[in-house]
Amino acid sequence: MPVAATADSHATLSPTRRLDPAAAAIELKDVSFAYDTRLILRGITMTVPRGKIVAIMGASGSGKTTILRLIGGQLRPKKGKVLVGGQSVADLEPDALYALRRKFGMLFQFGALFTDMTVFENIAFPMREHTDLPESMIRDLVLMKLNAVGLRGAAQLMPSELSGGMGRRVALARAIALDPMLVMYDEPFAGLDPISLAIVGQLIRRLNDALGITSIVVTHDVYESLKMVDYLYFVSEGKIVASGTPAEVRASSDPFVRQFVDGQPDGPVRFHYPAPPYHRALLANVE
């Protein structure tokens, strides 16, 4: 699918090309988070509309994955609110939180497939845990999900026998096993060869549209995300520094966005780790 076509097809769905908060599946309102005293997120506000793919981009260690964990309720914000379907995740009772998580799918950075189960059992796992479906129906459902990612033939392999890209696709099939309303992707492209990368990117888009899912993609892969997402947020040092549709991002003159998109080694994100001036460090030896 050509890049422009993707963007245009969405222009018809949301004429203003702005995100409408009323249709929001996920909302973060002024969310801050810290591990002990180390501040990870400071005042993040973002909206993820229903049925869209939103990318959260940023350098490694900028707090992107933390945002996913806040949405999943594995962490609680120090300040602000994380709303999923209007409910504050942090205020849910454990049972309600677990009920909510059943509507979530998550693709972890390296797949996080259960190494002691076959591909088939990995995908059947959430079905066996949360439903009382008969074995024959589980079999049909698993094969259907595997077929969607093109790996029906790999059902009886162990995760250790899969290549990186195949593992990611199996994990994707597992993430959509229970037909979730929201799928979160944590670095879905990390460590993939260009072909697998394109396959996974295309799958995310296709599954999103076919199943009516809302998707959040955390990544630092600019080219792949520009091809497939509806909206991008740029996170740096725990803050949102820029956001926009793919077309806006391409046209943006914001220095951070430019550094990120063009892959410049130095810019708003410094090449040097904070240090006293070089000449002083060199002279320290002389004294």
Binding site: G72, F104, E129
Partner: peptide, 17 residues
């Protein structure tokens, strides 16, 4: 190892303790 490869997190996110 299950923790290091996020299998435990994955389980939690699948609403399985």
């Amino acid at each position: 190892l299950m923790k290091a490869t996020e299998q435990l997190s994955a389980m939690e996110m699948m609403a399985v303790d």
